[in-house]
């Protein structure tokens, strides 16, 4: 064994602690990206190879946007940290599969260049970048962003002429029409769980999203507060206010299993940067998201409200963080 020279050797001096965990931002971002694979695979299965094309365009657009802004502002490239890739992937999963090529590209520019980089880069953005990109697309190209392809795989239960999402049908024609289209209630739930329905290409399969989320829970990258509060609030709200026959007659499961709720609750609302940091605040945040979602779904013009709900609650994150600070050790005087 070699023995280092003692004299003249320079020692590294730094502030404690001198050991650090293996965890890194890169690892988290790539793990979250990997956890999206089941949802992506289901999207490809139901909507065909074009799902790959749309998602790839979003990812490429995101990476280029990130590099472009960093080049302009003379910052170090951060493509390796995986956050731009993840934003692109999430944006892709939030797109209808039928969109023309320029929508993914321009939306990912809005997501990464404007929403994230112009606000200071990773950690400084106020709004969830992918959702901001999608909101921009929905408002700019409303028709293209609400033209839903029929799932091509498996058995068909939806009327071939209809290209509305289950939430769209629910809004326009009511719950009985929706059940009728799927045969019966049981089949409706099954199809919603599997993801065999019209919608954004990565949002439809509840099971696939839950598999990804389970992986993130296992790795402790995800805590339960926001998803649970969000989904439960939507369920309770749908049950109380969603029925035609009066209060407490709504069907919570249809609302909980459809639209972008699962993808939004597990992947978008829980974005570290734009959600509150303290657990109690996260509960409030999740409840707020659920409340606004159900408000939009039942009362506003759009059939789906998850995206706007999260973006609106993003605005409240600093306020929630200030209001729900942690309880510090020793704050309460204890008599000996």
């Amino acid at each position: 064994m070699e023995i280092a020279e003692k004299k003249g050797q320079k020692l590294v001096v730094s502030v404690s602690p001198h050991v650090k965990s293996e965890e890194s931002v890169d690892r988290i971002m790539w793990a979250v990206t990997i956890s999206l694979v089941p949802a992506f695979v289901m999207g490809v299965y139901f909507f065909g190879p074009k799902a790959v094309y749309v998602t790839a365009l979003c990812i490429i657009g995101s990476l280029l946007s990130e590099a472009f802004v960093e080049k302009l502002s003379g910052k170090e490239y951060t493509l390796k940290d995986g956050s731009a890739f993840l934003t692109g992937a999430l944006l892709g999963l939030n797109m209808p599969v039928t969109v023309p090529f320029y929508i993914p590209l321009i939306s990912s520019f809005v997501a990464v260049a404007i929403t994230k980089q112009l606000f200071g880069g990773l950690g400084y953005n106020i709004f969830n970048p992918a959702l901001m990109g999608r909101a921009f697309a929905l408002i700019t190209w409303p028709r293209a962003m609400t033209t839903w392809a029929l799932p091509t795989a498996g058995f068909i239960a939806i009327d071939a002429k209809t290209t509305a999402t289950p939430l769209g049908i629910l809004k326009e024609e009511g719950v009985s029409k929706l059940i009728e289209l799927f045969g019966d209630k049981g089949n409706l739930y099954t199809q919603l769980l599997v993801g065999h329905r019209a919608g954004s290409l990565g949002e439809t399969s509840v099971i696939a999203i839950l598999i990804g989320a389970a992986f993130l829970f296992y790795r402790r990258y995800l805590s339960w507060q926001i998803p649970l509060a969000f989904i439960a609030t939507v369920g309770v709200g749908a049950w109380i206010f969603g029925g035609k026959a009066g209060l407490f007659t709504g069907d919570p499961l249809i609302h909980m299993l459809s639209g972008g709720l699962m993808l939004g609750a597990f992947y978008m609302a829980t974005d570290y940067v734009t959600c509150p940091t303290v657990k109690r605040g996260q509960l409030v945040f999740g409840i707020g998201c659920g409340f606004i979602t159900i408000l939009i779904r039942l009362k506003a013009g759009y059939p789906e409200g998850v995206m706007f709900a999260i973006l609106i609650m993003n605005c409240f994150t600093p306020l929630i963080d200030r209001s729900f600070v942690t309880k510090i050790f020793g704050a309460k005087k204890v008599a000996p």
């Binding site: 590294v12 730094s14 001198h18 931002v25 988290i28 940290d81 200071g120 880069g121 990773l122 950690g123 400084y124 570290y272 940067v273 940091t277 303290v278 657990k279």
Partner: peptide
């Protein structure tokens, strides 16, 4: 410790 580089806070908590 040698590089001294660090990233932005991502508020992961």
């Amino acid at each position: 410790g040698r590089s001294g580089k660090f990233g932005n806070c991502i508020r992961c908590g």
